[in-house]
Structure formats: structure tokens, C-alpha cells
Design a protein around this nucleic acid. Structure first.
Lengths: 194, 194
DNA sequence: GTCTATAAGTAGATAGAC
DNA sequence: GTCTATCTACTTATAGAC
């Protein structure tokens, strides 16, 4: 990133998004307030409302940015790498979140799903749809190359991996034990590969 | 349950617990209020405070009752049944919760973990510890009988199953698609059994 | 773009009558 | 055991000055 680009994203709006994102990932959407963000950034709640009209809008923008960045990171995994290596890189993304003492944004929002504004609900489902689609392609590549077990249908394999990672993150975070997540992830990858 | 026993548990306190339990399982601990329960039972918030001094106490009692009932249900699974059958019965308990459009109480509380009062945090961890212990015993029985794959250590297998079920419930509930849960659960059981 | 001030509502919780 | 009434604190959100 160039200096200019970093300055562009260093404005108040992006600082607000940074704090809001962290608060959702650690406490959940229903357990943080504009007051929390205002206190941390040493601005007023009114200033927050200037940048994000409502909490629902803020939540939606946080979600959109998180999803964009997540799939940018996925796009950086070379499609010519062997499927098991790509799956390991996928798991690495989750582990990095957990190492920052956070949950997957969409994981914690899935738990709060019934209380979310409609646009946020749709964005959460879209995040998981796109995850499934990415994993399905990797799994199909791996099956064709003989490096992934030929369990069908692949969308069930993809969903099981996503569910397992989300669940493992929640339980590992409650324990403060990243090792648990690692061992669960290893087992899942081993079950998938041939 | 006898008529007398059902009358004993039909008091206001137990009605409050019923409503609170459902609200936590559907919306989460941070997204329900005394006002919600009071409105549903057509009593006042003050009456609620008579039965449960604070929301933290109510949450703790809900958690205690849920855990007690869950392990009573587990205790009803005959220990002489084959391990795969016992694992299927275990999964049935989760499915029944999902069919009632709820999440596992401790699953949703794990997502909210960082915002919970300390006694509730401890009760959540204890719930999962006891789940692990029950599963480990079943898995060891199955390995000895040759009906369960000899993956070691068994506590990793137990944890992976719990994580997978909790994650699958969250994602299936968001979709309103119980079938997803069933297919994930089937795969997990198939991966465990020989 | 940020502030002060304030609105209008809800949160959990308590005192005291009945 | 339930009520009315009330409290304090906090929630999201807006108006208008600078």
C-alpha cells in the first residue's frame, strides 16, 4: 500500500470501523454501543452519527469491509497450489483471527442472527455462501488431482469444514486455548485429504 | 413425571425460567430483557425481581437447569448400547434443540462469552467439560469394540464433534435449514465410526 | 467534521403498599 | 407474591452552533 493510500484509509471513518469491527468480533453486535467507540477514539457520539447515521448502517459497513478483505486474502492464495496447501492457507486465515483474540465476524453474527437488521442478515449469509463456493472449487481440484478424498457432495464437505472451524473458534476462544483450535483444524484437514 | 411433580414445577419461577431459556437460546443473553419476559407472562418487572434478584442470577439458574436436564437426557442413553448408537443419540439431542428453532444454550453463550458474568462463564465451560468427558468414554468403548476408528487422542475427537455440532447448529439456524445440520452430523459420525 | 445539548426510549433494579 | 411508582444509568439518535 502506498503512503497516499494509507492516508486515505486513516481517516476518522476508518478508525471507527476498526474499533467497531474489533468490538463486534470480541463482544458481539448487541453488546457494544456508540459510547464505547466514542470513548476509545475520544470523540463524541454525535461525531459517530455524522459518519454512520445509525448502528445498523455501521454494522452493515463493518460487515461489507470484513467480507471484502477476507476474500481479498483468499484471492491471494495461488490457484495453482495443491488443494491441501490451499485448505491449510484457508485455515490460517481463521487462526489469525483467533490469535488476535477475536471470533470470525460472521461466526459471532450467526449466533446473534435473529436480532440483526435484515441487511446484516443477508450479508452474513452471503459471506458463508462465498466461502462454500471457494472451498468447493478447491475440493473439486483436489479430488481430480487425487489429493483430496472423493467424498460427495463437495458442498457438504465445504459446509462441514466451515461449521467445524466456526465452532472450534468459539470454544477455543472461551477457553483462551488456541491449541484446541489447531488440533481440531488438523483433524478436519486430515479427514478431508487422501 | 407425576401430576404432583408437574404441579411443583408449574409455579411462576419455572415459567420465568422457561421463557428466559427460550429467549437466550433464540436471541442471546444480551438481547433479551426483564421487560420481554414480563410482557409474555403478563406480570411486572418487579415480580420478576422478586423471583430472580438480578439478570445475572436468572442467567445462572437458566444455565444450571439446562445443564442438569441435558445430562439427565444423556444418562438415559443405555451404556450397554453400541458406541455408534450412543453417538447418534447424542446428536439427536442437538437436533431436537434445533428443531425447536433454538441454539444450544451453551453454544450461544460461548459466542457471548466475553460479556457474561463470571459464574455464567464457569458454568458454560463446565457444560462443555462434561460433554467431552461423556463422549470420551463412549469413544473409548467404541474403539475397544472395534466400532469406532482408533483416532487418538479421544479428547480431540470429542472436542471436534462438539465444535462441529455447535457450528453446524448456528449456520443451519441462520439458514432455517435443519437438513444442513443433519448432513453435517452424518458426515461427522461417519468419520468417527469404523 | 466535531461539538454541546437534548430528546425519547429502554435497561436493570428498588421501595413500599396491598 | 404481585403491584405501582420511581430511580439511575444507559441506549440510539437529532438539532443546531462553531
Amino acid at each position: 500500500m502506498t503512503l497516499e493510500a494509507s492516508l486515505v484509509t486513516a481517516g476518522t471513518a476508518s478508525q471507527i470501523l476498526d474499533v467497531a469491527e474489533r468490538l463486534v468480533q470480541t463482544r458481539g453486535y448487541n453488546a457494544f454501543s456508540y459510547a464505547d467507540i466514542a470513548a476509545e477514539l475520544e470523540i463524541t457520539k454525535a461525531a459517530l452519527h455524522y459518519h454512520f447515521r445509525s448502528k445498523a448502517v455501521l454494522g452493515d459497513v463493518v460487515l461489507e469491509r470484513y467480507t471484502r478483505r477476507f476474500f481479498e486474502a483468499l484471492a491471494n492464495i495461488p490457484s495453482w497450489d495443491p488443494a491441501p496447501a490451499r485448505l491449510a492457507r484457508y485455515v490460517d486465515l481463521y487462526r489469525a483471527v483467533l490469535r488476535a483474540d477475536r471470533l470470525c465476524l460472521c461466526g459471532i453474527l450467526a449466533a446473534e442472527y435473529q436480532t440483526l437488521p435484515t441487511p446484516m442478515r443477508e450479508a452474513v449469509l452471503e459471506f458463508f455462501d462465498r466461502n462454500e463456493a471457494w472451498l468447493e472449487e478447491v475440493l473439486r481440484d483436489g479430488i481430480a488431482a487425487g489429493s483430496v478424498r472423493a467424498n460427495e457432495p463437495v458442498h457438504d464437505s465445504a459446509r462441514l469444514l466451515i461449521s467445524g472451524l466456526e465452532g472450534a473458534m468459539m470454544l477455543a476462544r472461551a477457553r483462551g486455548d488456541i491449541d484446541r483450535f489447531d488440533r481440531s483444524a488438523e483433524r478436519m484437514l486430515a479427514d478431508l485429504t487422501a
